[in-house]
Nucleic acid binder design. Structure first.
Lengths: 355, 355
DNA sequence: CCACTTAAGCAACGCTGTTGCCAAAGTGCA
DNA sequence: TGCACTTTGGCAACAGCGTTGCTTAAGTGG
């Protein structure tokens, strides 16, 4: 619930309903009983009964069997109805477009990947994007989430200068696509979309950093359960941190940037050194933000994951370990086939669950 | 408002009352009219009237004159009553103890600094601390905030291994002092307390990093208006980030740590180099978190501020500037005489204002 | 002096979660 | 098989929240 605005009864109702939906989403196939929901929300069982009755009336939740009795009336299990709503996620990458249709539970119902030249002009790309949305089966839709390489302004829905594609700088993508489709549209960075997807899957814990090593090196941060975007929605510029004062020059104008050192090692074929450098950046991140976990992704990492996971893990165990506590876990972010596009769709679904 | 718990009517009432109090606090001497409060909270004027009536009944707010008429009945101005409540802030530093008594508006009513040996044993220090609280004039107190050098567990109220003073590791400071005083006690790191003090003063904007250069180099982070502490309340370990791969060894076991390089330059008397190194770390921070501002403090900086502010500012202008936007401002954190102790007291006051 | 404007409170209201109570639906022992 | 007991969950009444509709208070300006 927004912390700097007043709250009235409809807002309160929405908040509690979203909270219950989120618990049902997390429970997944197992479902949850009214009393479990009451315990976890801190609300009274009667309040939960009223809320779940409304959710059932709206078709968002449904009965799903009963638990074993513990000596009395058995608990009735409730489950989210995944098909109650859908959202579309688009990933506009430099050379291809991925479109996925996702149901309320986050499961991909349909997916399509087509070649795309991000430099072909904004109008052409918008045309292709709108066509891909129209080609997906299910209706009605809650909205469309769009993920792109950063930097961009999430709040305004406007891309900044995408490296190599200056024509996108300042183009009002969100509003243009929303007008064309007649649907709500949300724009975010590819790394944030991937991080959101991980956050909702529960794989990252409450706070984590998702490090994406592809054409460049970026990060998506999830702090306290929510994607952290920063004051001007530009957070996550992880690749251009200085890890080698007066080191080799980087394309960004700086020296000793993590991205330059890491990608140079990859180009040399020295993956161990690339992982060691990446690990230094990950350790800086873990120490500054005290996160639960580090996740690795992106084309370079998924190609040959083992040396990266092993190398980063080693640095974190040595450098970011707090006395008496286990080291910060490092794992591969490999939960889904289209992590960025799915995360884009989740940008639309997340508010339904209060996230 | 906590985002993962249910909200009932009393919680809603508290939230809105805290919101109004926070606006009155921010308004300070100028006060605010009911309609201004309504506009800023999004609540109806009638709701604000009811809330302010309750606050006036409790003695937390009071009338304070009227605005000039704009053609009709002039607006009645409301103001926070600073003397309605007080809190104590304690700063347990390595060699001295600072105790301050602050009123609701954050103004220091009384202050006292006494020598202290943090290594004299937990019981002795607790005795001194309790004595200092008892010696302060005003009653009743909302509680006592305690700030110490980190690392520590804010949630549990237990210090970890303070460098040089192992006897504090695991000592249940918060509960021990709370029992002795019969008052609520909150424990936090000195850097977090200073950052909170800055946040409440409004000097840092919504998101900022406070960099503290004293015996060591630490940071207090304020993200989205709130102190960010991380999953295990260990966030802000800024000094041991790697900025020089394979650089000189640091006491922490790593190499090329920001703190080691920076303090070494200070020891050499090369303040420009110290500022340049510190600036590199600040730029890493600003890029990763997209903060509004960087603030500098701590004994070393306040001693000779100019080269540090100038040097860090130069690096940020060159390295952390986003296209088409002004650089991240760098300023000295010099708002108050006892920033850490005042922030410690604010740890107690902040919840009253919903922060 | 009076029409008009703006602020703020009173009263009634709708809706929230809570409380008190009761029916439903199991278990387990006699 | 019957009955006491446990546990779940809905019904009804309720207190209290912000909202709505309206009235009163307190100014300005012609």
């Amino acid at each position: 619930m927004n912390s700097d605005t007043g709250v009235n009864l409809p807002a309160l109702r929405n908040h509690n309903a979203a909270l219950v939906l989120e618990l049902l989403r997390t429970a997944g196939e197992d479902g949850a009983s009214r009393l479990e929901l009451a315990e976890r929300t801190g609300l009274t069982p009667q309040a939960v009964s009223k809320i779940t009755a409304r959710l059932r009336e709206e078709g968002l939740a449904a009965d799903a069997g009963r638990r074993a009795s513990t000596g009395g009336k058995p608990r009735t299990v409730l489950r989210l109805v995944p098909g109650a709503a859908h959202a579309v996620g688009l990933y506009l990458d430099r050379d291809e477009l991925t479109a996925v249709l996702v149901d309320l539970s986050g499961v991909v119902v349909a997916a399509n990947v087509v070649p795309l030249d991000l430099g072909a002009g904004t109008e052409v790309v918008m045309e292709v994007a709108a066509g891909e949305v129209a080609a997906l089966p299910s209706r009605p839709l809650l909205g469309v989430g769009v993920a792109m390489p950063g930097p961009l302004d999430h709040a305004a829905g406007v891309p900044h200068r995408v490296t190599g594609f200056p024509e996108w700088d300042g183009f009002p993508l969100r509003d243009a696509l929303a007008r064309r489709l007649g649907l709500p549209v949300v724009l975010d960075k590819d790394t944030n979309a991937a991080a959101l997807s991980i956050a909702l899957s529960g794989a990252g814990g409450d706070s984590f950093g998702y490090l994406h090593l592809g054409t460049g090196l970026g990060a998506g941060l999830v702090l306290g359960g929510a994607v952290y975007r920063g004051a001007r929605t530009g957070a996550g510029e992880f690749g251009h941190q200085t890890v080698q004062l007066d080191g080799p020059a980087c394309g960004c104008g700086g020296r000793g940037c993590l991205e330059a050192l890491c990608l140079a090692a990859v180009a040399r074929g020295d993956l161990d050194e690339a992982a060691r450098v990446l690990g230094a950046g990950a350790a800086n991140l873990a120490k500054l933000l005290d996160i639960d976990r580090v996740l690795l992704g992106g084309r370079v990492v998924t190609g040959t994951a083992e040396p990266f996971v092993r190398g980063v893990r080693a640095v974190l165990e040595e450098r970011a370990r707090r006395a008496g506590e286990p080291p910060v876990p490092v794992t591969l972010a490999d939960g889904s086939a289209h992590p960025v596009a799915e995360g884009a769709a989740q940008l639309v679904l997340a508010p339904v669950f209060g996230r």
